[in-house]
């Protein structure tokens, strides 16, 4: 590390358990964030600030005015440009040490293996169930540690998954809800700030994982309820009947699920 880096990361480096060695490890780490939206925004900003050396961003969408209520990595002038370009620009301005790799597409069964291949840790910051199940299955099948999270209205939840060692998303949520049951955006909504609470927890989990510190949020679903302002921990365990990591898995290759698109303008 050069002198500027030692100063920039000094509050990490002085921590017992991090030190220069830990900081170098962060600088050499590669983290992929799928979804450069509400959850992905704080994850990307905090990982970039902390000096994670390579950050991959996957998103096929452009910034929409209605995103700005919670997707704090995008600004008003970014409306209309691809989210990955907007996010890359902010990360570069925050910390030029970070190499940003952009994937201007969404994940599918056909491309996810190639996209996640080079990364040490994967962050699910997507908004839809087909992507969430696909990310889980790909991470389990290819042995990538990852952080799952979801937010809805005034609630959020997150869990860290170490494939083969801890409960996966499907151990808890066996299959996606029927497409017709998923609430439309107008019925759903999410309070600004919710993504910040949950995404920031995801970012801290990534740093802990990369640094080998503490106890990860594994086998525990952390549920956040903003209205009573309460965190609750639901103990979970690997489900022997899990279709992807259980004793007799039925999902041995990746599948694309369908979900009705949600567009408030229609």
């Amino acid at each position: 590390m050069n002198e500027e880096q030692i100063e920039r990361y000094s509050r990490n480096i002085i921590l017992k358990g991090v030190g220069g060695k830990g900081q170098k490890r962060l600088l050499q780490s590669k983290v992929l964030i799928i979804g450069a939206g509400g959850l992905g925004a704080p994850v990307a900003l905090y990982l970039a600030a902390a000096g994670v050396g390579t950050i991959g961003l996957v998103d096929g969408d452009a910034v929409d005015l209605s995103n700005l209520q919670r997707q704090v990595i995008h600004f008003t002038a970014d409306v209309g440009i691809p989210k990955v370009d907007s996010a890359k620009d902010k990360i570069n301005r925050l910390n030029p040490d970070v190499e940003v790799k952009i994937h201007k597409e969404r994940v599918w069964a056909s491309n996810i293996r190639e996209i996640i291949r080079d990364y040490d840790f994967i962050v699910d910051g997507t908004d839809n169930f087909p992507a969430k199940f696909l990310i889980n299955d790909a991470c389990v099948l290819y042995g990538k540690p990852y952080s799952h999270a979801g937010i809805l209205k005034f609630n959020g939840q997150t869990i860290t998954v170490l494939p083969g060692k801890s409960a996966c998303y499907r151990c808890l949520f066996i299959a996606p809800p029927p497409a017709g049951a998923v609430p439309s955006c107008s019925e759903a909504g999410v309070l600004g700030g919710m993504a910040g609470v949950i995404g920031t927890i995801q970012a801290v989990e990534v740093l802990k994982y990369l640094l080998g510190l503490g106890d990860l949020l594994t086998d525990r679903l952390l549920v956040f309820e903003a209205l009573p302002m309460r965190f609750r921990e639901v103990k979970v365990k690997r489900n022997p009947a899990c279709p992807v990591c259980g004793e007799n898995p039925t999902i041995i290759s990746l599948v694309d699920y369908e979900q009705k698109a949600c567009d408030l303008k229609k």
Binding site: L39, S66, N67, G125, D127, N128, F129, G150, I151, L264
Partner: peptide
């Protein structure tokens, strides 16, 4: 009993 809710969110348009 625990009711665990499906939550999407994130980059929801």
């Amino acid at each position: 009993v625990e009711f665990l809710y499906f939550m999407g969110g994130g980059s929801q348009k």
